[in-house]
Amino acid sequence: MKKQRWISILILIFGGIIFCSSVTIAKPIELSLGLIVPPKHLRYIHVIEPWIKMIEERTKGAVKINPYFNMTLAPAAEMFDATVSGVADISESYTFGVPGKFAMTEFLQLPETGFRSSLSCSRAVWHLYKTFPEVQAEYKGVKVLWLHTTPGMKLMLKRKPVRSLEDLKGLKIAVSGATMVKVGKALGFSPVTMPTADIYVAQDKGVIDGHIRPSELLISRRFFEVTKYGIENIDLGHDIFFVAMNLKAWEKLPPEVKKVFEELSGDWAVDFTGKAWDKFDKDAETEVKAKGFEFITLPPKEVERWRKLLAPIKEEYAQELEAKKMPGKKILEELKKLAEKVKE
């Protein structure tokens, strides 16, 4: 009896081993995510990281997204092409890193377009993408998951408060790309095209006197340590970002996984990002004010002086696009219609 019992036990054990070895445990689909920001950046904490978690949870572990921070996979200027080639499966980066490539998208980089918040401007740029095939063509070679923008950017200054146009004369101000150089020329300061990652050191060493960027960078990149003043009530444009996936990586995904990505991209992701960015931008302003940072509110007459100088830029930019056989006038008219519906 004992012998038969042991034989039965051995049969069960070996049978279990054979059965288990025949079952293939599915490995998750691993996707690399190229990022230009560090892990403590507010945009990663409040937008990208939650999005990663939602993708992984909704696919029930079938997808694992591995973030690579601080331009580990590619410099910002090469991030889009790195996504096209497959160096990065997914990436998030800004458009101004590749001068001229996203010319129509960057219409919303211009100042005083009527979209002050990240939410309204992100919706506007996504509307342009969905409406104009020419804008879609700027992203050839990738699956665009969504586009988004900063809240209205502000003029930030190291040590000299600016309370009038005259105070700008001679100042060297870091701007984000060739499109924003137009702002410097209009207002009378010296624009210096500079990546966001270089601003802290440049401002600390006195290479520049200030920068034009969203308030959240005062915390995200600790710019408040080298910045004392900001202009509160002039919208100096928006930086624009893409979140895109390599086409081959997209095509390999199972239908049920694609469905999850579609549900957590597009219109939903535009709103999710815009709302989050507006909140942490305001929270950053509150935090730096408590540290002694001063936001200057220009008087109404001074605001009108600035806006008068900035107003022609949009028409000039539209004409430049037309000269390159791009629908600059149509895009400008579409943005004007959208801006009329937005009250901010």
Results as ranks from 00 to 15, higher is better:
residue 227 T to V: 01
residue 168 L to R: 02
residue 254 P to M: 05
residue 197 A to P: 01
residue 211 H to D: 13
residue 162 V to Y: 07
residue 213 R to H: 07
residue 198 D to Q: 15
residue 180 M to I: 00
residue 204 D to W: 04
residue 217 L to R: 04
residue 189 F to Y: 15
residue 182 K to C: 00
residue 201 V to N: 14
residue 212 I to F: 07
residue 210 G to F: 06
residue 205 K to W: 02
residue 154 K to I: 05
residue 247 L to D: 09
residue 246 N to S: 11
residue 209 D to S: 13
residue 153 M to N: 14
residue 225 E to H: 02
residue 254 P to C: 11
residue 252 K to Q: 15
residue 191 P to M: 06
residue 168 L to H: 06
residue 184 G to Q: 04
residue 217 L to F: 05
residue 152 G to V: 00
residue 206 G to M: 09
residue 171 L to C: 04
residue 183 V to N: 07
residue 152 G to C: 02
residue 220 S to W: 01
residue 229 Y to D: 12
residue 245 M to L: 11
residue 218 L to Q: 07
residue 170 G to T: 05
residue 244 A to C: 14
residue 226 V to P: 11
residue 185 K to W: 03
residue 173 I to Y: 02
residue 198 D to W: 06
residue 188 G to Q: 09
residue 249 A to H: 04
residue 245 M to W: 11
residue 226 V to E: 05
residue 165 L to D: 09
residue 204 D to E: 15
residue 172 K to Q: 12
residue 167 D to H: 12
residue 161 P to N: 02
residue 171 L to T: 04
residue 161 P to R: 03
residue 168 L to A: 05
residue 239 D to V: 06
residue 211 H to F: 14
residue 220 S to D: 11
residue 150 T to D: 15
residue 224 F to C: 01
residue 235 D to M: 02
residue 176 S to T: 04
residue 231 I to T: 10
residue 150 T to G: 09
residue 238 H to P: 12
residue 161 P to W: 03
residue 216 E to T: 02
residue 193 T to K: 06
residue 221 R to S: 08
residue 214 P to V: 12
residue 220 S to V: 03
residue 182 K to V: 00
residue 199 I to G: 00
residue 213 R to D: 06
residue 249 A to W: 07
residue 167 D to M: 11
residue 183 V to Y: 00
residue 216 E to S: 08
residue 189 F to K: 10
residue 171 L to E: 04
residue 158 K to V: 15
residue 241 F to M: 07
residue 211 H to N: 13
residue 157 L to N: 03
residue 155 L to S: 08
residue 183 V to S: 03
residue 171 L to P: 07
residue 251 E to S: 15
residue 220 S to C: 05
residue 248 K to W: 01
residue 159 R to I: 03
residue 246 N to R: 06
residue 215 S to I: 14
residue 191 P to T: 11
residue 149 T to A: 12
residue 159 R to S: 15
residue 208 I to Y: 10
residue 216 E to D: 06
residue 242 F to L: 14
residue 203 Q to D: 13
residue 165 L to E: 10
residue 201 V to K: 14
residue 177 G to L: 10
residue 148 H to S: 13
residue 184 G to F: 02
residue 184 G to C: 07
residue 214 P to S: 15
residue 232 E to A: 13
residue 171 L to Y: 06
residue 155 L to A: 09
residue 249 A to G: 07
residue 228 K to N: 14
residue 155 L to M: 15
residue 156 M to L: 15
residue 154 K to W: 00
residue 154 K to N: 12
residue 157 L to A: 07
residue 206 G to H: 10
residue 192 V to T: 13
residue 200 Y to R: 13
residue 187 L to K: 08
residue 223 F to K: 02
residue 222 R to E: 15
residue 233 N to Q: 12
residue 180 M to C: 00
residue 192 V to M: 05
residue 192 V to L: 08
residue 211 H to E: 11
residue 218 L to K: 01
residue 157 L to P: 10
residue 179 T to Q: 10
residue 190 S to M: 12
residue 251 E to A: 13
residue 209 D to I: 10
residue 246 N to H: 11
residue 172 K to T: 11
residue 178 A to N: 11
residue 160 K to L: 04
residue 245 M to A: 13
residue 252 K to P: 01
residue 254 P to G: 04
residue 186 A to G: 09
residue 236 L to G: 09
residue 151 P to Q: 09
residue 221 R to G: 01
residue 201 V to L: 14
residue 190 S to K: 14
residue 151 P to G: 08
residue 220 S to I: 01
residue 186 A to W: 09
residue 243 V to W: 07
residue 203 Q to K: 06
